[in-house]
Write a protein that binds this DNA or RNA. Sequence first.
DNA 1: AATGAATGAGCCTTCATTCAT
DNA 2: TATGAATGAAGGCTCATTCAT
Lengths: 196, 196, 196, 196
Amino acid sequence: MPKVGMAPIRRKQLIDATIECLHAEGYHRTTINRVGRRAHLSPGLVTHYFEDKHGLLVATLRELNKRLSGATARRLASATDPRDRLHAITDAQFDEEQFSPQLVNAWFALWGNLHELPGIQRFQTIYEKRLRSNLTSAVRPLVPEARVAMVVDTLMALIDGLWLKGTLSASGINGERAREIIRDHVNSVVGPLDDA
Amino acid sequence: MPKVGMAPIRRKQLIDATIECLHAEGYHRTTINRVGRRAHLSPGLVTHYFEDKHGLLVATLRELNKRLSGATARRLASATDPRDRLHAITDAQFDEEQFSPQLVNAWFALWGNLHELPGIQRFQTIYEKRLRSNLTSAVRPLVPEARVAMVVDTLMALIDGLWLKGTLSASGINGERAREIIRDHVNSVVGPLDDA
Amino acid sequence: MPKVGMAPIRRKQLIDATIECLHAEGYHRTTINRVGRRAHLSPGLVTHYFEDKHGLLVATLRELNKRLSGATARRLASATDPRDRLHAITDAQFDEEQFSPQLVNAWFALWGNLHELPGIQRFQTIYEKRLRSNLTSAVRPLVPEARVAMVVDTLMALIDGLWLKGTLSASGINGERAREIIRDHVNSVVGPLDDA
Amino acid sequence: MPKVGMAPIRRKQLIDATIECLHAEGYHRTTINRVGRRAHLSPGLVTHYFEDKHGLLVATLRELNKRLSGATARRLASATDPRDRLHAITDAQFDEEQFSPQLVNAWFALWGNLHELPGIQRFQTIYEKRLRSNLTSAVRPLVPEARVAMVVDTLMALIDGLWLKGTLSASGINGERAREIIRDHVNSVVGPLDDA
DNA sequence: AATGAATGAGCCTTCATTCAT
DNA sequence: TATGAATGAAGGCTCATTCAT
């Protein structure tokens, strides 16, 4: 009695299980068998739906990025003022929903092994370019043109650094603190809010 | 083939080969066999000198950290002015010698798999604390006490972020650019150099 | 190749191959590869079905004990007279089917390496206790209570000793001779059969 | 400054360490390195003095047998009466000094792996024959000729069985109990001591 | 659509042995 | 006489993948 339309359901189940597994067990313990077990599905299904272990991991990273982009889009939607736009973008990077230890760790476990995921780097580069482009257009109205590149580079590095700190529980950097730091930095860069 | 006193020589050879291998092949391709082959030594020697693969990787991370600490110490030695001290520390993080793609990638390959290296996290935490302590004492004379924590947190995240960018050739962040960014940031934080 | 329900078949095949291998090649030559080869199965299947080499050996010892217990049960079933019950138990220990060089050697190869099979000792102790309990209730009606313990201890040691001799082809102790010896001993202990 | 006459000293040290190791770690953990470490000697010395790991184990078994034979000889020396001679032999098998857990376990660890010690079986057979011969000449004066073989076979099996039990701490068979059992058995076989 | 049986390559590790000193 | 450096084979185990059902 083959059911139809299972594909999206199964794919979601497996990706969720992969995220869980990456978080809980780390990259190299994230095996097809373990992912299957977590999803209460057989290991054979992974290849059925993702061709490959590689395929599963790529799909997982895509999903992680998508969730993050979603946060950016949502926040940008309700921002009009240039400065607000900038805050929207940076805040989105540390959105409570996405900046959970689980997602950060899963993302980072993949990130830390890009070497073994051929084809993903290009894909990741695209994501980075989009962020840079978003940041650039948000920053441009706020600082002298000559400083745009520097400000954007700094912001991007700072964002990545805060993510990285987020994987180390010992660092004490959670979403709230990350937003605080990045807001402080943004303010110091674009000048104090002259609300007078 | 001398019989005695080979230990330090072999250990260095194997650690160097590990760094090479991590850079060239990535974490999970860094196997005992491959490291041995790179060092022109038999795989059995790894266990002879490091007990374990784990032991080898720990020793490698230690070595990487040591080299980095060395750079910091060297630069601090010739800095007296508070602002100079701060620059010395941050510049040291991107010292030409240490911030080579090879070392950065090796370091990061280990970093991205801390999960699988039990016991290393504690060790890494110590290293982080030392950096924080160095930065704090350098920053304190330069900014109001209430801002010290924020400034240090930001600096540490920015440093990590720049390292991370350094692993992606596509990001265009090399040692020079990294130092430029961090100097710009430091200046903006502690106020412009009033050399007038 | 059917897809389902292979477990019991494969398990039996692998256990049989293990017994063969222990007999023919000895304990430390009984490797997962060799067992697999004997069973015409891949080495990976061992872990699939037994988790471990250890698991395979434990299962094998269990099987050997089960076969032996089976012989005891069968013989006891057709014995009513107390003396017959005692003979039934002791004879069962040297049942032609179980006391083959193959099984004895396999059993002994395991036995001689209990050190390396953590957790098995307890299991083996249970088996021993059952035998002791069986013997005790068979002996009790036949000798003065004060002698029961001594008689049982002696019987158990003698049984083990005969098994041990059974592993040495040079000893000339086969099933028939073993039964002869133990019957002679039993008779001398419980008094001659007064069939007059 | 090469010392002369070290051979017997070193050989003894290494054999003692082997016995310890067999007892404490079991057969397959008894490696040349571990034995060397226990003896505070380098692993290379083992091959120097024993050619081989095999050579070391053979020498160890020889030593164990020698110690046991020594006990027999000592006890036989002071026995004149036929029955005393028999008791001397059987008691010697469970001499407090030899029937220690350490020696029993070491002996048994070797015994349980005779398969892997080519050439030892022959050697062990000799030892068995000598025991049989000793027992036979002690038994002959005490029982009808027709029963000698049976009595000796039983005795030999019982002795081995008691040794075997001695390796299992759970069995509760120590030297004292073993002697008690074997004496009881001997008495029942050769008839009660008619000291009237 | 789904299962789980089966394979075989590859990894880490252990170890007996050899050998230069 | 003694050391310990060095090798390389083999073992146990994990795992991605294939495939019959």
